[in-house]
Computed example of a mutant assay.
Amino acid sequence: MSFFSPFADLVDGLGDVLEPVAGTASTAAAIVLFTAFVRLLVLPLSRAAARGQKARTRLAPQVAALRKKYKKNPERLRKATLELYAAEKVSPFSGILPSLCQLPAFFLMYHLFASAEIGGAPNTLLGHSLFAAPLGDRWKDALADGGVFGAHGQVYLVLFAVVVAVAGYNYRRTKRQLAGAAAAAGPGGEAEALPGMGAMNKIAPLMSFMTLFTVGFVPLAAGLYVVTTTLWTAVERTLLHREEPAAVPAAA
């Protein structure tokens, strides 16, 4: 028995349980349920990340004051900023922990539906599908089987539409958050206080659109995991940040 065999049995068993309700899409429904379970496990980290974001917004005026005080000493500025965060028990990079902790689950789902064999036995999971699309196939297979608007391709069109809608929502929301943080911190803000923050702030609003490439190139089962967790993230962040305080402009 390989390391992946128990997980394959788990997904297969969940599919059998859901078959009376989901029919031929029962294994796909099992993947959605598995994703929800993973997200529930990561929820404490997501809540901690939300608290960290609120704390960083609250500390932005103090960061701006440090930047003014040490504007001629960048290294001292970075040290003082990190000391401030440490004293307040705030990590400037806490927001990435929920995503990092999900990577093992994503690669697990990828392996389960990208391998012809699991534990030396034929991979029976590859025989399942989401409507007309086999869960082990990729978008290129859909294009070869009827094209973009074929029965196989239409499944991907729905997934792509969901990804674009969620990515657009996340893009607007992230831009608003970064604008609020910049207003609170003053010109430069955290981008000058912490190495790499400026580049991260420029890339962050666009990250959601990268999901399109992931869904297009991985097996459909892994793509379904990505779409589900992306949608979950959008809802979760909306709820966790709904009481986030408005930015307070830093003193000139």
Rank of each mutant, 00 (worst) to 15 (best):
L206W: 13
A105D: 10
L100R: 01
S129F: 03
A36D: 07
R67M: 05
L220E: 05
F131S: 13
S26G: 03
M207S: 13
P219Y: 05
A181E: 15
P195Y: 02
N73I: 06
L224F: 00
A87W: 08
M210V: 09
G223N: 01
N170F: 07
K89S: 14
P98M: 11
A30S: 08
Y169C: 08
F217Q: 14
T214E: 00
M200A: 15
A144W: 00
S26A: 14
F93K: 00
P134Y: 11
E88C: 05
T124P: 03
T174S: 15
R51V: 09
L108I: 01
V166T: 12
T211V: 14
T124K: 09
D145F: 08
E19Q: 14
A167T: 11
A250M: 05
L220W: 09
A36F: 15
A80I: 07
F213K: 09
K175N: 11
A179N: 04
A181L: 13
A121M: 01
A191K: 12
A86M: 04
A247Y: 00
A86Y: 06
A222T: 02
A221H: 01
A30K: 12
L100M: 10
L239Q: 01
N73M: 05
L103E: 14
L103M: 15
L40V: 13
A133T: 03
P104Q: 14
R242E: 07
A50I: 02
A8P: 04
L130H: 03
T230K: 06
L100D: 08
A191M: 04
A222E: 02
P104R: 15
L84T: 06
F7C: 04
L103G: 11
P205Q: 02
P245G: 06
R51H: 15
A181M: 14
A142S: 10
P92I: 10
G153R: 01
L206D: 00
L40P: 01
G23W: 15
V90M: 06
E192M: 05
G95R: 08
A48R: 12
